[in-house]
Design a protein around this nucleic acid. Structure first.
Lengths: 244, 244
DNA sequence: TCATTGAATTGACAATAGTCAAGGCAGATA
DNA sequence: TATCTGCCTTGACTATTGTCAATTCAATGA
């Protein structure tokens, strides 16, 4: 169970809050509620009234939408120290997606009204939110590009590259941040397709796959394979510190 | 050639500028430059220094990225009275995509520095920009959903539905806003796939296709076909007044 | 009216990804 | 250690989309 200091630290860690008013942050901290959730627990569903924002302290939260027959589209997977639920501060005030913990996770929730007030009264915070929205938008644009141009294996390669500390030289080991099934849905493909595409990637680039751990002697091989079908050049600066 | 009044009107028509300071808008108008561009003319390319924002007065502008081998991914197609190029007001200040007129078009360009100043000095404008960014983000999320869940025919149907005045009852006629090839790329498919998928849609829903004009007696038929593979219910409010 | 041009369609085929069913594997539990 | 469970993989097959080449169509201008 996180204490006051950890809550304050978590709020402070959120990109757009970093430079914001201390008073605002302490007010947020005062109203924070800690949540411990089990794997599979649903935090809210698409079209629910949006009254809270969430910060992930540990674990992962999947944002997704689904059709009546249960087919899911994963929008994003939120890692530690990131926020979600803030998309609809304006207008409709309903969540545009559902949120589900993909493993046992700790979260804090904050009244969305506080954030709304903060944005309206502190221009610096509004600018920071705007900047973070713009960043997210770029990421989504890139996502659409990837799904249009890259095939399954290339998307996996690209995903792996984004897990690497990009300044790294020489041999690299990566550990997948979450289940392969979840990675697959994050990349917009079926688990079976993921499995086969990973094997294809292995054959093409000589990476070494052992369970969730992937090792390679030469990152450049992977770069050549995946970044050939991408408009950006490796390393993709703007994706460096992003959510996975 | 548009006159001062038309320029002012165009600036006024941009969603986030509507409620903004009059002085800001007149300063923008004073610095506006009118551009007449031919079909195929490139306004800027991905990674160019972002010093201007653009407003479309007439015609269409395609935003896209491409890989070294020329494969394109269309990010968006900007209609009349919409703005583009504002994605990178912060940080890097480079355009994250290329822009090309898809037919003879009239545009105005404005120094991005003015918008930046405006946002930093007028909190109301910052809020309006934030709101418009959030809206755009939702649209992109929906776009990702569609590409994940819907097949080619369903995406076309969904596109058509968004062209309809959604309150309309009874028989409807639609005219495609631009070339089929461009619609295809907007929906992330090849022209050949578009052609075949449209035919399939026709067989499935009884729509009547004559060139770029599409007629149907019953919108509901199309709704049943396309919206079955979408998390949203028709009419999709949040897409109503959006760019196509 | 004819020729030209680019858009759109069509056919034949290849590549890619999805579906369904059957096992295999590894970590958790008793 | 044995068993259970859920994740992952594999095989066989289907569906969907992409690619390449050949026409067809329609708008345009000489």
């Amino acid at each position: 169970m996180p204490n006051k200091d950890e809550i304050t630290a978590a709020i402070q860690a959120i990109e757009p809050f970093k430079q914001s008013d201390e008073l605002f942050k302490s007010r947020m901290a005062a109203h924070a509620r800690v949540l411990s959730v089990e794997k599979g627990q649903v935090l809210f569903v698409n079209q629910d009234e949006a009254d809270k924002i969430y910060i992930v302290l540990s674990g992962w939260v999947k944002l997704f939408r689904e059709t009546l027959d249960g087919t899911q589209a994963v929008i994003d997977i939120i890692p530690k120290n990131h926020m979600f639920g803030e998309t609809s501060i304006f207008e409709d005030c309903i969540y545009p997606y559902s949120a589900e913990a993909t493993e046992t996770s700790e979260l804090i929730s904050l009244p969305i009204s506080l954030l709304k007030d903060g944005i309206e009264t502190d221009p610096k915070l509004a600018l920071a939110m705007l900047s973070s929205m713009a960043k997210y938008r770029k990421q989504q644009d890139r996502e659409i590009e990837h799904r249009t141009i890259q095939n399954a294996s290339q998307r996996i390669g690209c995903f792996l590259l984004r897990l690497i500390d990009q300044d790294q030289q020489g041999p690299v080991s990566i550990h997948l941040p979450y289940d392969k099934t979840l990675v697959a849905s994050r990349l917009g493909m079926q688990p079976e397709t993921f499995s086969r595409a990973l094997k294809k990637l292995k054959d093409a680039t000589g990476i070494d796959v052992k369970g969730a751990t992937i090792h390679m002697d030469d990152v450049q091989q992977l770069v050549r394979y995946s970044c050939a079908a991408c408009s950006a050049e490796f390393p993709c600066k703007d994706l460096k510190a992003s959510a996975y």
